[in-house]
């Protein structure tokens, strides 16, 4: 049985490696709270390679404009249609920023308009319960980026299942820290990351 491996997508444009410690923090949370068999370190996987299909959950982030190549577009479409789950997070936390504009353009070009995930969606209750939908980040609360509290995540649904999640909440900044830092925190901010993984593995 395959071990879960946290994979981060590499793509031709932009700064795909902008949250290098995020996998470590999320993996730590998964190990801490669940019995899921997870690899101790994450991997980077090229969005244009066939290797992408060996990782049914992939994280994609960046600050810079995103322009997918034809191979990346073809792979991403097939990946989502076959049941993979891609999480795309705007590292700028700015809906007027270049990443948001270009990434959402790319998504809607491939899949059409995204759907807003309601706060009652099982993503928010499949392990930890988040009654108010996606948890806010410090970057939102401190007024960085677009100075907005994004209350919802957007998604592409395939056969009723979430195939792609788009976040303007900047979890890439929120969770980009060494796991040991958690002992100095009152609350573990990566708990929602556990829900993402559990949802990906069970729905």
């Amino acid at each position: 049985m395959t071990q879960f491996v946290f994979a981060t997508a590499k793509y031709a444009s932009g700064d795909w490696e902008s949250a290098p410690s995020l996998p470590e923090a999320v993996i730590d949370a998964v190990v801490r709270y669940t019995t899921i068999d997870i690899a101790p370190t994450g991997v980077y996987v090229d969005l244009s390679s066939h290797e992408l299909f060996n990782f049914p959950f992939v994280w994609l982030t960046g600050h810079l404009p995103v322009r997918f190549t034809d191979d990346e577009r073809r792979n991403l479409k097939q990946y989502v249609e076959r049941g993979g789950l891609m999480m795309i997070d705007d590292h700028n936390h700015d809906i007027t920023g270049q990443f948001h504009k270009t990434a959402t353009e790319e998504i809607e070009r491939l899949f059409g308009k995204m759907t807003r995930l309601p706060k009652t969606h099982e993503l928010y209750s499949c392990f930890f319960v988040f009654d108010d939908g996606p948890p806010n980040t410090h970057h939102e609360l401190n007024g960085y980026g677009d100075d907005l509290l994004h209350k919802y995540l957007d998604a592409i649904l395939v056969n009723g299942r979430v195939g792609l999640i788009y976040s303007s909440k900047d979890y890439s900044s929120e969770w980009n820290f060494h796991a040991e830092t958690k002992k100095f925190m009152q609350q573990d901010p990566t708990k929602f990351g556990v829900n993402l993984i559990v949802y990906a593995l069970t729905r």
């Binding site: 395959t2 879960f4 019995t35 899921i36 049914p56 049941g83 392990f127 056969n159 593995l201 069970t202």
Partner: peptide, 29 residues
């Protein structure tokens, strides 16, 4: 089964085929 890709895609394939599926997927104690 344990929460994992085999369980997830087994449920997905059978639901897409038209089966109604109940599942107990183990995540933690």
């Amino acid at each position: 089964g344990q929460a994992g890709w085999e369980a997830k895609f087994t449920v997905a394939a059978l639901e897409e085929r038209g089966w109604q599926v109940d599942a107990h997927l183990v995540v933690s104690p």
